[in-house]
Amino acid sequence: MLPDTSSLSTVNTMPTGRLAAMLALALQLARRDLRNRYLGSFSGGAWAFLQPLVQLAVYSFVFGYIFKQRLPGADAPGYVPFLIVVLWPWTAFSEALSRATTAIQDNASLIGKVALPRTALVLAPVMASFAIHGAGYIGLLLVMWLGGVGVLPAGLVLMLPALALLFLLALGLALLLSSLQVFVRDIAPALPQLLMLWMFLSPVFYGRYVMPESARPWFDLNPVSGFAEYLRFVLLGMPAPGLTAYVCSAVAVVLALGVGLFVFRRLQRHFEDFL
């Protein structure tokens, strides 16, 4: 009798079959999450697009009018496109992290009752966040391009690898944080504050060049800088980040995935004992 590769609880299934089953489950979970996130709300799915738009309006009002954020370079586009290009990926990233960190804890009713690949529980919210904000991002970029804001068409393709890497960075950190959260419950409450701090330390609302000369090289150490400046480079034609920034971002992705997977694998067999 041939081993059944569709089985989840079978020990001797082929790794590819297990991976496929895990992905299928994560997709199903993500789809359910998306469908139900806005199910109970009055305006339904419209919130998915409305909320970031409102957020954008607030931020551009606060930073564009109240704080009078200096416009980047004379030939560059205005502040709103400048903000959109980075704010959306950041929102996807930070939302993925904050949702995925409690993923194992929130699904305690599944763990210990149903046999399932546990990575899927973490992958699902990351996928859901990137799917919904990625769709909004691409939609907004297309609108900007059609509306004559200087979005470079080639950038629409060139940004995809950056988004994919950002996704992996989020996934790696999510695996790490979600498994630690099972043991030490202090991570989830601290995370929003840390993410806020990280956002303001990253060139999201401002460019690196508004900072004093001495502070600028330090931005290379923040993996988000490489992503933010690359996106502004390919989409808006702003100056590209240096090699150091690229290397730091790439190392961060590899490190996050490696450490995240290692810690998650080591701890996952003990989740049920500590939930």
């Binding site: 059944d4 020990v11 001797n12 210990g112 049920e272």
Partner: peptide, 18 residues
């Protein structure tokens, strides 16, 4: 046996769909 919990000692082998 179903793989919901991971054993502390020993091993389980299941050659089929549960």
């Amino acid at each position: 046996l179903t793989g919901v919990l991971t054993p502390t000692h020993g091993s389980v082998r299941v050659n089929g769909r549960v």
